[in-house]
Design a protein around this nucleic acid. Structure first.
Lengths: 299, 299
DNA sequence: CGCGATCATACTCTCAAAGTATCATGCTTT
DNA sequence: AAAGCATGATACTTTGAGAGTATGATCGCG
């Protein structure tokens, strides 16, 4: 492999048309440059420069080398800067996961958009999946960060950052007895006798457990009539009259016709948090930038 | 600029995940490799490898460097071979010119096509122009070779190679008294009283002079009624009845309606040669390949 | 014909990078 | 817990590619 130094020297010779002048430009003496050229010619087994009375001029092979060398030098010249950008977190890759419920919150989508605009050099990969898959993705280094609803506090190796708390709403089939309430907050205990439709626990344990705990706090244990595999499916089941549900407030914009939403009294302690989970040991500067931006947006 | 040697060493470290093993692969000892890595880190001001108990693993910056380095190394690795190909004439540029009359001869077009097929790595540039322009193009290095009809022997610095001789035909307006001859060759002296339409001498001195010389040899001096700026225009004028002309046989396929072609007796010494003109000093291997192929096709 | 410009050759020298030897650290195994 | 092994870091020595100096060879030009 021909060293970059020699390529640069050759380009200088070709551009100046004189070994002497090229040596001057390179800040060296003429004899070593002459030998450098001879060395290149010997190594390639090809005459690169035609020596004339008035300087030198490239042969066809020399012109080809000059072109190739310029390309290599240009690429090599940018390496150092690219690495420094990567170290500053301005360039690289970032894989972000989110549960389907987090994806629907405007905070998440706007945060991702803002990061993308602030760091256009970072290639982003998105993944929507259940909490379990996201945790697995983080541990297996397939993901760098994940927006989740439960705290995932128990998982070793992960750090979880609390971003915000979102109120939850009761989702009732239109026409349900409790659907109309004049804008008043609903008492959670009013739902004691209802059939509940919930997002499957394995896919979203955080929300599931929060709802069950709040119900128990309100003095009843909800009857779970259906478990839906996706949040959208939950709302479809509610609309179809299979029961009622309790969902994060940002879902309000999703479920269209057939569903009435009512606030739940604050005392019930029902809230849907959003957390950012990352590997505790991950020192990636891109991730640091991402966390800083998201944390700033949350605070 | 980071030397290729160091980039290659870094890639080896990143790929092996152990400095020791990478050193083995590179055929060197471990300490210098460790220092090489430290040197890179110092030069870039960035930590590239995280040292762990069981070897090393790249940081984000290290991964970026690894990617960049691979790209540079791949490009640099091909340089030597590309230069050798250029030296063998298998890669490069070739600019070929031809006069309009030469362009119409099947030998020229098939020769160009065959060269193109045989050396797909050579980028070709074509130019159709008058003889004067072609000579100027060769001397000014805009062209590397030109197909011409006259010998251009007088021009210093050019070498001219004779490729073939083509018979010439009398081109007569349809219905002309000499147009029908039962396939017999026409005696040149039979044209003594005719008005001649000729391609302008500055654009094609070779043909012009050959025709005049042959006529004088046949005992008459032709009356040039019209001079046309292009060969196709010559035939148009003949078809329009402005006079008769004498043209290379390959023109027969060009002039469509309104023109009758007749062979001229061999003794008149009328023939239209095709030559290849090149710079005498041009040692380009691509040109050498081209000349060899064209010469082979002619012989 | 001598002068200036330019590339080539011979010899010396220097410093960056390779080698050698050895230490430090922290698992793993007994 | 101690010995052993794997791995990287450090200190010192050695080497060689490449830089410098001096000079020769060639040739156009006034």
């Amino acid at each position: 492999m021909i060293a970059l130094r020699r390529l640069a020297a050759f380009v200088a010779i070709a551009e100046e048309g004189h070994i002497t002048r090229a040596a001057e430009r390179l800040g060296m003496q003429q004899p070593p440059l002459t030998r450098l050229l001879q060395g290149l010619e010997a190594e390639l087994g090809v005459r690169l420069m035609e020596r004339g009375k008035r300087g030198v001029r490239p042969t066809a092979a020399g012109a080809a080398l000059c072109d190739e060398a310029r390309a290599v030098l240009a690429r090599a010249g940018g390496v150092a800067e690219a690495v420094r950008r990567a170290a500053r977190g301005e360039q690289g890759r970032l894989a972000v996961g989110f549960t389907s419920s987090a994806a629907l919150h405007p905070f998440v989508s706007s945060g991702l958009r803002r990061f993308r605009e602030a760091f256009p050099g970072v290639a982003m990969v998105m993944e929507e999946a259940g909490t379990g898959e996201l945790v697995e993705g983080l541990l297996g280094e397939r993901l760098d960060a994940a927006f989740v609803r439960s705290a995932v506090g128990g998982v070793a190796g992960l750090a979880v950052e609390h971003l915000l708390d979102e109120p939850m709403l009761a989702a009732l089939p239109a026409g349900h007895g409790l659907a109309e309430g004049g804008g008043e907050a609903l008492r959670l205990s009013a739902l004691a006798g209802e059939a509940f439709v919930l997002y499957r626990r394995p896919a979203g344990p955080g929300l599931y457990d929060a709802i069950l705990a709040a119900c128990r706090g309100a003095g009843f244990s909800p009857a779970v009539a259906q478990e839906a595999p996706r949040l959208t499916a939950t709302l479809s089941l509610v609309a179809a009259g299979f029961g009622i549900s309790v969902v994060p407030a940002s879902m309000r914009f999703l479920g269209g016709a057939g569903i009435a939403y009512r606030e739940i009294e604050a005392g019930a302690g029902l809230c849907a948090p959003i957390h950012l989970a990352v590997r505790r040991a991950d020192a990636s500067p891109v991730l640091a930038r991402f966390r800083a931006l998201i944390r700033g947006a949350a605070g």
